[in-house]
């Protein structure tokens, strides 16, 4: 595939309307979104609940039909199905045939994906090992925990060695160790040169993994580009927790630094802009307050989501 395009996924003015119930009333879920995923990158598709991330992935996988616009993967229109042997997909909250054992499960997907008999068993065993399920290879999926199912789902997405992998919230429902394991897995895919598109609403995952992101809010793309650039433009702030503060000092913080102080007496909490941090801490120490915690705070994705949602509300 040497002549394959550098732009692996191209989404162009994609529109999706749902018709809830039997009525004719339409609900627009995707308002003409466009973005591009380049070869070899880990692309984060980020947005709050209900933004349309899953809907977009399902359109890309041909599970639902777009109401308008176009999209292509590896230069093929998404209406075709043959190119999907180069694409792996992990759906959101996956659930699988629980009558199968881990090994049978992977073998089934390998057969459906057209993996030949030769080497199929080895491939499945290797993948089970890679996602850490070797010990449960012969147990039925109905006995798997949520984390194990998620990992089985990832193995399923990789069984035919695709060059593009779509992951819908790959870390949801996992404990910190599980999240770390999945992150390592994704990074390994990256070093193997695969293109990864992943849905998430968790900023720290994006920061740790992604090269570029598209931020989607209520069916519209709000930003597309490098995650670093995006965060740099944001004003930084710090959360400060103090103890044993006298009321007049609290008042001073509130008036001079516009810090919304929460709590009182032996534990107060507020947020200040980075440029005021030094002064605030000096005052605190000089007046004999106890500094309990100082946490640098990146204006979280949450607040970007919130401001976007509020802007949306104001438009109406």
């Amino acid at each position: 595939m040497s002549d394959a395009p550098e732009e692996i996924v191209v989404v162009d003015e994609l529109v999706k309307d749902f018709r809830p119930g039997f009525g004719l009333r339409k609900k627009r879920v995707l308002h003409g979104i466009s973005f591009k995923v380049r070869r070899g990158e880990i692309f984060g598709f980020v947005g709050p609940n209900g933004a349309g991330k899953t809907t977009t992935l399902k359109v890309l996988m041909g599970l639902i039909h777009a109401s308008g616009g176009r999209a292509s993967i590896l230069g093929h229109d998404i209406g075709e199905s043959a190119y999907r042997r180069h694409v792996g997909f992990l759906p959101e909250n996956p659930w699988f045939y629980d009558h199968l054992t881990g090994r049978e499960f992977l073998d089934f997907y390998a057969r459906v994906a057209g993996v030949g008999v030769a080497g199929r068993a080895d491939r499945c065993a290797e993948l089970l090992d890679r996602v850490g399920l070797s010990h449960a290879a012969d147990a039925r999926l109905r006995t798997y925990s949520k984390g194990m199912l998620q990992r089985a789902g990832i193995a399923q997405a990789l069984v035919h060695d695709p060059s593009v992998v779509f992951l819908d919230e790959p870390m949801s429902g996992l404990d910190p160790i599980g999240r770390k394991e999945i992150r390592d897995l994704i990074l390994r895919l990256h070093t193997e040169g695969k293109t990864v598109l992943m849905n998430t609403h968790i900023l720290s995952d994006v920061e740790m993994l992604c090269d570029r992101v598209a931020i989607i809010v209520q069916g519209r793309i709000r930003y597309e580009g490098c995650i670093g650039d995006f965060l740099q433009n944001e004003e930084r702030a710090t959360d400060v927790v103090l103890g044993a503060v006298s009321p007049d000092v609290v008042e001073q913080f509130e008036t001079r630094f516009e810090a919304g102080v929460k709590g009182r007496g032996d534990r107060i909490e507020f947020r200040v802009a980075e440029k005021h941090l030094e002064e605030v801490l000096r005052i605190a120490l000089d007046t004999g307050a106890e500094v309990k915690a100082v946490t640098p705070h990146r204006v979280s994705l949450e607040s970007i989501f919130l401001s976007a949602v509020e802007a949306e509300g104001a438009e109406r």
Binding site: S81, R85, F89, P91, N93, Y109, H160
Partner: peptide, 14 residues
């Protein structure tokens, strides 16, 4: 209903 169809149809299967 069990959403198994998502993964199956995501394979090169019509």
């Amino acid at each position: 209903d069990r959403r198994t169809i998502y993964t199956v149809l995501s394979k090169p299967l019509s």
